[in-house]
Design a protein around this nucleic acid. Structure first.
Length: 277
DNA sequence: CACGAGACCTGTTCGC
DNA sequence: TGCGAACAGGTCTCGT
């Protein structure tokens, strides 16, 4: 499920509480229950259990597509990859078939990491920067300017679609929001980065921030069984709409493979200046 | 450096 | 209806 807006939504709900769910801030971790070993990237399960128990959750946030929990001593990092989800619920004797990690908390609640496809990972570390340090800029930060984006585009010679998915270039974009941003900007996914004009870079900058902010405002995108609660899927311009008319010009949306990812675009609104076809 | 293919996994949908 | 192929919000690693 998880791109920046979905991770942001989950992290916000855990931090602030939502509906009947309390905030996790101030909760102490009492027990750890790992149900799929490979979910834990580091440290070993023995050391994880020994270290995590007794620590208190002091802050919760997001960096790129990572969720972080600042504990008394360590940082707990969670990456949901394709099918992960995190929530809290009362402690009961049973658990769901896709649960991979449960952390029992004070107040009779447990923090659940559920992940059908088992791609998700959890780290417990004193030095989160070793894992987060390679990430590119946060697209919604003030520090992420048109000029920064333009310089980055100039420095590389890459197709835009895979470049925008590259987390060292910008942190947080995934397949959905990349396609959405490129369509909003009116730029073809195969355009070579260094050929963008400053005007195009500005439109791309605006579009990236616009679709991410809209996604957050709508609590993320809910497709299939994976992530629920958001409704940005009702506002998608191109993703998952192959064959349907472009909302700008009526031309059927096309789908192609770019770097093995389904890529959706309007052949009319997103002309490719690098090729003629 | 840039790119494609294959791995890692399970579940749903599509096409014949 | 049934069965295999294609596909899915991600990223890593290897070969060219």
């Amino acid at each position: 499920m998880p791109e920046l807006p979905e991770v942001e939504t989950i992290a916000n709900n855990l931090r602030n509480g939502s509906g009947d769910q309390p905030s996790l801030i101030g909760c102490e971790i009492r027990r750890a229950h790992l149900l799929w070993e490979r979910t834990l990237a580091e440290p070993t399960i023995d050391e994880f259990t020994k270290r995590v128990v007794g620590q208190v959750i002091q802050a919760i946030g997001r960096r790129g597509k990572f969720m972080y929990f600042n504990l008394t001593k360590d940082t707990l990092l969670v990456h949901l990859r394709m099918s992960g989800d995190v929530w809290i619920e009362p402690i009961i004797a049973t658990w769901g078939e896709h649960y991979r990690l449960m952390l029992e908390l004070s107040e009779g609640m447990r923090l659940v990491f559920s992940d059908t496809r088992k791609f998700g990972r959890v780290w417990l570390t004193e030095k989160p920067d070793l894992i987060l340090g390679h990430l590119g800029p946060e697209p919604l930060d003030d520090a992420f300017t048109v000029q920064k984006l333009f310089e980055g585009l100039q420095r590389r010679h890459r197709q835009l679609k895979p470049l925008l998915l590259d987390q060292t270039f910008i942190a947080g974009l995934g397949n959905i929001y990349t396609d959405e941003a490129l369509h909003l900007a009116g730029i073809h996914p195969l355009t070579i980065s260094e050929t963008l004009t400053i005007e195009q870079a500005e439109r791309l900058w605006f579009s990236i921030r616009n679709v991410l902010q809209a996604g957050i405002q709508r609590n993320g995108t809910s497709i299939d069984w994976v992530y629920r609660g958001g409704d940005y899927q009702n506002y998608l311009r191109v993703y998952g709409r192959a064959g349907e008319p472009c909302k700008e010009c009526g031309t059927p949306i096309e789908r192609m493979l770019v770097g093995q990812r389904g890529t959706h675009f309007c052949p009319q609104c997103q002309l490719n200046p690098s090729y003629q076809d």
